[in-house]
Design a protein around this nucleic acid. Structure first.
Length: 608
RNA sequence: GGAUCGGUAGCUCAGCUGGAUAGAGCAUCAGCCUUCUAAGCUGAGGGUCAUUGGUUCGAAUCCAAUCCGAUUCACCA
């Protein structure tokens, strides 16, 4: 075996990606052949060679043609010859128009398979031990979670996993909106209509139970407005005068005053909701290291208003309200304290940002929140920066687009909101239905089948919601989401199960013996090329906070495996050496798929 | 009106730090199960990359304008 390790970082275990190695080598070639041009690594563009050409990696020559006054073919030939002569990584070169196609030595892959480790090579040194907080989910305690929350939860959990895998120290948090007018609405409706009913007495999940009263509030509110308008009142006035609304506002005042009956009802109803949420979170795999409640945090940031005034960052209007002028930053004037001295939403967010920083010493704070709050977070960060808060620069709003249905937006008024619990249950049911229809239930116990259906159903749902880039809005097509073919988690899970099945049958054992990678098959190499790119993809996903990149990669890897599987038999390989090589490749593929989907919160079965 | 984001195949989406003939999946059509799991593989058809102009050796990608869609600009949260 030829020695290739000089190409790796000597002092770190982390291996340099093949594409990076090509860049480094090419830069050396340039330095040697054209020292006066001073070409740096980052000036060189390296792509995977298109399948219709011979080679593995391609250097684009056009950028250098002019400055070096060389014609592209001559330049390519010179560089290619130098690389093949001076670097054992390359075995052949060919220049086609302005592209230098380089063939990588078969022996490289043997080194790769023996040196590569999934856990350490995926680490990104720029993130190592960085303290990162991911805030996500953040529900209101007046209604159950819906499809939009699922995208948020899956995103938050996946991003936390990806960033942690890349080396960061991650704290997952959730800010529960457990107070305010909307909470009082459910409470009032319960007082009026429930006759003491509880989730237990009605046999309804707690969050749904409370959500039903929130709906009832709105029905009654509308009815009362109609009645008042019929009696000759203006609509605007009716909205304010409706008795149920007045009662709600009074309740909010009582809550803030800490009136015992109100606090007691509030505690009871919230506990019902939390019980329901716990079930949902458990089902979808959302976990949190720290939960903040707005009832505890809503007064935070008040002292910062005084500080801001003293610093001259804020100013006071004649009526006593406090503002910040952001017009020079292209934004508007923003209120930070009402004239009655109470604080507004953004004020507590400023306070909470400081609180998080104090408590956890975080350097990056990622907020997974829908894109309708883009403006809010822009303002939040700007204010924190102007106040000179240590938490300011680390604020990052991971903004994601709304989930829409093929019929348009989800509207609670029209009853088109897709409930999270219902959807999860439906996906699992469909997984069962399709597994049974395919006749793939043999050899499983009842418990194993239940676990499998959950893995498939939930996996399909998570993948479907994660495969689209976060910032883009997405269409949730129920028919498409239950499809278990093509660009889905099921496809990837299936590839994993196939690998496990083959390796079980062949009695695969990991080997430390050097693998023979001479005369490597195209399907074998294609798979190795994909596998080699995993650390780079993971680091990219972490840098972009983009789980979709991992979805795309995992699918491509599974696709490459399926082609390999079709063409290259493991059990009946041409030779013992081929069998061992293919087993190693297949094993690493399974590990990589499991690792990648695991970060997305998706499990992979060993048989299905 | 200002700001921000999006517009790529019939549908859902990749590709966007400029690079070879723009890619997947679904759907449609045609093949492949006496051999490791056919939830799979192989192939075909399908495109004015919203429009127009600019930058350059080269633009889906960068810039400008326009059109369409969404969000936002509360003493709400």
């Amino acid at each position: 075996m030829r020695y290739l390790c000089s190409l790796y970082y000597k002092n770190k275990h982390i291996m340099k990606s093949l594409a990076e190695q090509v860049k480094v080598s090419a830069a050396k070639a340039f330095q040697s052949l054209f020292p006066e041009a001073n070409v740096q690594e980052n000036d060189i563009l390296v792509n995977e060679t298109k399948p219709e050409f011979k080679g593995d990696y391609t250097i684009v020559l056009f950028p250098f043609v002019k400055s070096l006054r060389q014609n592209p073919v001559a330049l390519g030939n010179a560089l290619g010859a130098w690389l093949v002569d001076n670097n054992e990584l390359f075995t052949a070169h060919e220049t086609v128009s302005g592209f230098l196609n380089l063939s990588v030595s078969d022996a490289y892959w043997s080194t790769f398979l023996s040196d590569y480790t999934l856990d350490t090579d995926t680490k990104d040194t720029s993130l190592s031990d960085k303290k990162v907080m991911v805030e996500y989910s953040s529900p209101n305690t007046n209604k159950p979670l819906h499809l939009g929350h699922l995208r948020n939860n899956f995103l938050g959990n996946a991003v936390a996993g990806i960033v942690a895998a890349a080396g960061a120290e991650v704290t997952k948090t959730c800010v529960v909106n457990d107070r305010g007018v909307h909470i009082c609405k459910s409470m009032i409706a319960w007082q009026l209509f429930a006759n003491g009913a509880t989730p237990q007495s009605e046999g309804i999940k707690g969050d749904h139970f409370v959500g039903d009263y929130y709906v009832q509030f709105n029905d009654e509110y509308k009815r009362q407005i109609k009645e008042l308008v019929a009696g000759g009142m203006e609509e605007k006035q009716a909205e304010q005068e409706a008795p149920i609304m007045k009662a709600t506002q009074q309740m909010l005042v009582d809550w803030e005053a800490g009136k015992p009956e109100v606090m007691s009802l509030w505690n009871t109803m919230n506990s019902w909701v939390y019980e329901g949420f716990d079930t949902t979170y458990k089902a979808i795999g959302s976990t949190f290291d720290k939960i903040y409640y707005e009832s505890n945090t809503y007064l935070l940031g008040k002292d910062l208003v005084e500080e801001g005034l003293a610093k001259g960052v804020f100013y006071q209007k004649e009526d006593g309200s406090v503002w910040i002028d952001l017009t020079t930053d292209g934004l508007d004037e923003k209120l930070v304290r009402r004239k009655d001295g109470t604080s507004v939403y953004i004020t507590q967010d400023i306070g909470l940002a400081v609180e998080k920083q104090k408590e956890y010493g975080i350097e990056e704070s990622i907020y997974v929140v829908g894109d309708e709050q883009n403006y809010h977070f822009k303002v939040l960060k700007l204010i924190c920066q102007k106040l000179g808060l240590p938490a300011a620069d680390g604020i990052y709003h991971l903004s994601y687009g709304m989930v829409e249905l093929p019929t348009g937006k989800m509207k609670s008024r029209e009853g088109t909101v897709v409930d999270a619990d219902d959807l999860v249950a439906e996906m699992v049911r469909l997984a069962q239905e399709q597994t049974e229809a395919a006749g793939k239930t043999e050899g499983f116990s009842t418990e194993e089948l239940a676990a499998l259906y959950e893995m498939i159903g939930l996996g399909a749902l998570k993948f479907y919601l994660l495969r689209v880039e976060p910032k883009k809005k997405m269409i949730f097509n129920p028919e498409e989401s239950i499809d278990l073919h093509g660009f889905t988690a099921t496809f990837i899970q299936y590839a994993h199960a196939r690998i496990c099945s083959v390796l079980r049958k062949t009695g695969y054992q990991a080997t430390t013996v050097a693998l023979d990678t001479h005369d490597i098959f195209p399907e074998e190499k294609a798979l190795l090329v994909q596998l080699e790119q995993y650390p780079a993809i993971l680091q990219q996903a972490a840098a972009e906070l983009n789980p979709a990149a991992l979805c795309n990669y995992s699918f491509k890897l599974a696709q490459a495996f399926n082609s390999f599987y079709d063409k290259c038999s493991i059990a009946n390989a041409e030779s013992a050496a081929k069998k061992q090589l293919r087993s190693e490749i297949a094993s690493l593929t399974a590990k990589t798929l499991k690792h990648g989907l695991g970060l997305l919160g998706i499990g992979v079965p060993e048989k299905m």
